[in-house]
Computed example of a mutant assay.
Amino acid sequence: MIDKGLDQQGFIAREGSLDRVPALFGPLVEAARQGIADTFGPDRLHSAYLYGSIPRGTARPGRSDLDLLLALHRPPTPADRADADALEAALDAAHPVVDGGGILLADTATLLGELERYDLGWFTACLCTPLLGPDLAERLPRYRPTSLLARETNGDLALALPRWRASTADPRALNRGISRRLVRTAFTLVMPRWGGWTSDLTASAEIAGGYYPERAGQLRTAARVALDPTGDPELRRMFTEDLGPWLAAEYTAVHGVKAPRP
């Protein structure tokens, strides 16, 4: 039987757990927990979450990254961002088991608000594993793989295309980020039809390719680059000038456009 990432009631099951963290990544997670507590403290921090391959138990030493979400009591400031960047750099330098990482910052009002209910709220409740503090998932609804969820998570792909074309970021990192977003967007495009959830990029590409066989090869390539990135400019061109524009147009036609953000 295919695992579609749902619980017995048909809601998307929370995908990660601290129990699934591979032993090799345990010291990193503990260092992150302590670093977050020491850096932000209870005056700024409401709660912290781990997400991505590490809490899913699929992290690859030296290739996976450390992904964290910090929920603050108030909207993040430039000082908060600077502290997060410094912590991120320190963790990366001290733990070669990961290849970089990222710390997302958001305030609790935003994470719990109506505008983000089917984007950052869903992300927190379903894709994030509690690391510190009270779990915001207890104040959020349960989610099904609906068209509304698809629209609000990835219905803004068209806005990303001009930024990707103009970016001067490291080509390898850029292709990695673009390919991840494209595969995830392709999956959520078909998610309501497939009737489930997965964060596995290889599986996501195969599932989406099953509904759009003419794009299956490009999606497999994108999934491959997402896991083993390369700075090949031809791949970036394919992503931003062919696969990306097609995907953005098809997404709008099927699910509509994500609600505008301020």
Rank of each mutant, 00 (worst) to 15 (best):
71 A>I: 15
84 A>S: 10
114 E>F: 00
91 L>E: 00
53 S>G: 01
55 P>I: 09
96 P>R: 05
111 L>R: 01
114 E>A: 15
116 E>L: 01
68 L>F: 03
43 D>C: 07
69 L>R: 07
108 T>S: 11
126 C>S: 14
114 E>L: 09
32 A>Y: 05
89 A>M: 02
58 T>Q: 08
44 R>Q: 15
65 D>C: 09
105 L>C: 08
82 A>I: 06
89 A>H: 04
54 I>G: 07
83 D>I: 01
127 L>A: 12
120 L>P: 04
32 A>D: 00
61 P>A: 12
123 F>Q: 07
36 I>K: 08
86 A>D: 11
72 L>D: 07
115 L>I: 09
113 G>T: 02
77 T>S: 15
130 P>L: 05
64 S>R: 10
90 A>D: 10
56 R>Q: 10
112 L>D: 00
90 A>Y: 00
40 F>R: 12
82 A>T: 10
48 A>K: 11
58 T>C: 11
50 L>S: 11
111 L>A: 11
129 T>F: 11
32 A>I: 06
61 P>E: 04
60 R>G: 00
85 D>S: 10
109 A>P: 02
93 A>G: 01
59 A>T: 09
45 L>N: 09
73 H>T: 04
61 P>Y: 08
114 E>C: 01
126 C>E: 00
63 R>C: 06
83 D>M: 14
117 R>E: 06
76 P>G: 09
100 G>S: 13
48 A>G: 13
102 G>D: 05
119 D>A: 14
108 T>P: 00
76 P>E: 03
82 A>N: 00
36 I>H: 13
37 A>G: 10
116 E>T: 01
128 C>P: 08
53 S>L: 04
112 L>G: 03
79 A>T: 09
64 S>F: 05
64 S>Y: 06
85 D>N: 13
67 D>Y: 02
58 T>M: 07
128 C>H: 02
120 L>C: 01
47 S>C: 07
49 Y>W: 13
102 G>Y: 11
56 R>P: 04
81 R>M: 04
98 V>P: 07
34 Q>K: 14
80 D>L: 09
53 S>P: 14
112 L>A: 02
61 P>D: 10
110 T>K: 01
117 R>A: 04
112 L>E: 02
126 C>W: 00
83 D>A: 15
108 T>L: 15
90 A>L: 04
55 P>W: 08
62 G>P: 11
122 W>P: 02
58 T>K: 13
74 R>W: 03
52 G>L: 01
116 E>A: 15
48 A>F: 14
52 G>R: 05
81 R>K: 10
73 H>R: 15
56 R>K: 14
35 G>A: 04
107 D>W: 12
37 A>Q: 12
82 A>E: 14
100 G>K: 09
60 R>L: 14
62 G>W: 04
120 L>K: 05
41 G>Y: 06
45 L>A: 12
85 D>Q: 13
77 T>L: 07
45 L>C: 09
34 Q>R: 15
115 L>P: 08
98 V>E: 06
